Simulated scan of single mutants.
Amino acid sequence: MADNKMGPNLQAGAGFFAKRVQKSLNRAQEKVLQKLGKTMETKDEQFELCFQNLNKQQTDGSRLFKDVKAYYAAVKAMHETSKRLSQTLREVYESDWNGVEDLALITDSEDLLWNDYEEKLNDQIVRTMENYTSQFPEVKERVAKRGRKLVDYDSARHHLEALQSAKKKDEAKITKAEEEFNKAQNVFEEINNELREELPVLYQSRIGCYVTVFQNISNLRDVFYKEMSVLNHDLYNVMKKLETQHSGKAFIIKGLNRNNLTCTYTHADVAKSGTITPH
């Protein structure tokens, strides 16, 4: 015959599971009674304010993190597009044209500058926001645990009050209920006090996070734009060398206009006026 006896580990596991089920039932019953107005829920206005701030902080942080990631993705896309544009220019730039060696140096420098900008954005902006927002799931779980312990505390209190107000008092049950109430109270007050201290500190940390992120963005942009401006100036000078080398040749664009004419433009026209004037 099969042995139906459970070992010590299985018995302990079954007992633990039974306690969890009973706790869940007690909590559900207490919440129903509270909704019906038959029992009163313990209120903590200071904690409620902290919890509202936490929800707002998490919403704001998640929104900012989403936009930071979008900004970083856009920079990466712009880097890739700029790199392809530079590569195409190098491929179409003929070997006997003035500035061909300078062009290679400029485009390589641009790529390095984009790489540096991209890496520092990731290190100083994306990871900062990632670390900042990663705090919230653990904190919200502790808040949820605090909510469960509050229900246990209220349930134990109401159970004790019911025994104490009964016409026929059972001192043994009252004593046991007092022990369970004191235990539930201590557990609840411990986590409640911890969160009341920690949540305001976490809420204030948003200021330091925002300052760090946007100071870093400002500094990185400033350096990137200044160095890119130098490279842009160098690229412009290369084009000027090419223009000078081939100054006698016209820049011709063929297309249809109202008169169905072919329009011809010179380098001098474009450089002088900033616009294209047909001849």
Rank of each mutant, 00 (worst) to 15 (best):
A2G: 01
P8F: 08
A14K: 05
K19M: 03
V21M: 12
Q22G: 01
Q22H: 12
Q29I: 07
L33S: 02
K38D: 08
K38Q: 13
M40R: 15
E41W: 11
C50V: 06
C50T: 04
N53P: 08
L54H: 04
L64R: 13
Y72D: 06
M78H: 15
S82G: 13
S82L: 12
V92W: 10
Y93C: 00
W97D: 01
N98P: 05
V100P: 03
E101P: 01
E101M: 02
L103T: 03
I106M: 08
S109V: 02
W114L: 03
W114E: 10
N122P: 02
V126G: 04
N131A: 04
T133D: 08
Q135H: 09
V143E: 09
R146W: 14
R146F: 13
K168A: 00
A172F: 02
F181K: 08
K183Q: 03
A184P: 11
N186L: 14
V201H: 14
V201F: 15
C209A: 03
V211G: 02
T212N: 10
V213T: 09
N216T: 07
I217K: 14
N219E: 15
L220K: 10
E227P: 04
V230G: 02
L231M: 10
L235P: 05
Y236C: 01
K240Y: 13
K240C: 00
K241H: 08
E243W: 07
K254L: 10
N257P: 06
H267Y: 13
D269H: 06
